[in-house]
Design a protein around this nucleic acid. Structure first.
Lengths: 248, 248
DNA sequence: ATAAACTATGACGTTGCGTTAAGGTCAAGA
DNA sequence: TCTTGACCTTAACGCAACGTCATAGTTTAT
């Protein structure tokens, strides 16, 4: 049996935290008959460590509470949702970094380009790593199928499909001021998803992977940049939100 | 002159938000003599848009308040600090994503290995591309200098230096449970930085770039993974924190 | 016995608003 | 003119996850 102080030093959290976890019913110790002091046993210690693990992963305490009282397969589902959410946050922060860089550049009036070029390289290196992760989600079989499907179309049909796609992108640009989570942008994502069916039928994870690839692979990105320099990043964010909301 | 409602729809924020900004002195409108209603002019609209821009970048409102009342060069400095902070957050989220992935795999009982092995080919194919990008990050002059410096050492000296480096990494692993911002980890970063002087003398940004490269380039990362599978990511996070604290 | 160290509960502060609530003001229609 | 409804005001609680006193009882060491 540990007292609050003992457990707190053991686990590296504050006494107040333990009080709070008791208060919200996340970690409820037994009480001493005699003086009402909290008493934690080894099971409590174990539970606390699980709590701290999920807390480190930025789970909300209320979610942790549910999690720990549910079977293992639900924990997996929760983790997968969390994975989506983290990617959404990642996409957002990436975009912020770029915007900050652009703004600094703007304020500095294009000075010190050499130094800038160096930073550019950093972020590109960064990007390729993400692209790799995105690609990991693809089954090579699907990719091959994608090509087959595409090549079965006639030249005119191909052109028509591409035009349709471009229309989606143009509308997406129009939706940019409204934000990636706006109904307009989300509707564009919906249309984009339908459009993708000409090539193959991606599931939600693959959809996110695709948007990621578009925004990261220099090959793809070139085309997007021609339409609008921030379209690719915006699309990825919008798709991330789309996927996250659809998944739950 | 706009009323609260008008400005709120114009800028796409809630009335409550405008009330709040008035309350904390971030955006103070004039008041009607007659009935005390808030009246915003065009200057207020402009200021609001600047506020929203920085808010989008996750600046705290108190910081925005200072920012908007300070000269342009201070805004640049603030943006640069924010840039560092965003990278820190990015590194953290990346690590979380990895941990979540590992945990899912663990819970699933390691079933995914075949798929993973499948993609091994992909990453090896891309290795050369990474290597190229990694080189591009550095000023060729620095790289050459680095080589000159390194090759001027004797064989024993080289070995001693490498051993010293490994010792830093081992200590870094020991510091991992304490967190990337712990004094232990930060001390390791300090030692690592000193160690790097055997090769070249990176400035703070280059230091961060180096850690990033170590964690992303498969070439480098292989070596780190051999010591500990999360060392590279941990190091990058620790270095990001190190750089951020030193810079301000 | 007394001080130091520990325990308890309660309550306010933090950030950026959302959300009622209770009540004034103003223009328009019956 | 009276009423309705849309707008305006301030005040105050709620949210997440605790940190930080404040006040008071308990245990332990000397």
């Amino acid at each position: 049996m540990y007292s609050v102080k003992e457990l707190s030093t053991l686990a590296g959290v504050s006494v107040r935290t333990l009080h709070y976890y008791d208060q919200i019913g996340l970690l409820s110790p037994t009480r001493s008959e005699h003086n009402g002091y909290r008493q934690y046993d080894d099971a409590a210690l174990l539970r606390l460590q699980q709590i701290l693990f999920y807390r480190e992963l930025d789970f909300k305490l209320s979610d942790i509470k549910e999690l720990l009282d549910s079977p293992a397969f639900e924990q997996i589902t929760a983790l997968e949702h969390h994975w989506d959410a983290l990617w959404t946050r990642l996409a957002r922060i990436e975009r912020l970094i770029k915007t900050v860089e652009d703004t600094i550049q703007h304020l500095k009036g294009e000075k010190e380009m050499s130094k800038r070029a160096l930073f550019q390289a950093f972020s590109e290196e960064q990007q390729s790593a993400y692209a790799k992760q995105a690609e990991q989600q693809y089954d090579p079989a699907t990719v091959r199928e994608s090509n087959r499907k595409w090549q079965s179309y006639s030249a005119e049909k191909k052109q028509a499909i591409l035009d349709e796609g471009n229309q989606v992108y143009v509308d997406m640009i129009a939706a940019m001021p409204k934000g990636a989570d706006s109904p307009e942008a989300q509707a564009c994502v919906e249309r984009w998803r339908a459009h993708m069916n000409y090539f193959w039928t991606p599931n939600l994870d693959q959809l996110l992977g695709l948007a990621t690839m578009y925004s990261q692979s220099t090959d793809f990105k070139k085309n997007f940049d021609a339409l609008h320099p921030e379209l690719a990043g915006f699309m990825r964010e919008a798709v991330a939100i789309y996927v996250e909301t659809l998944k739950r």
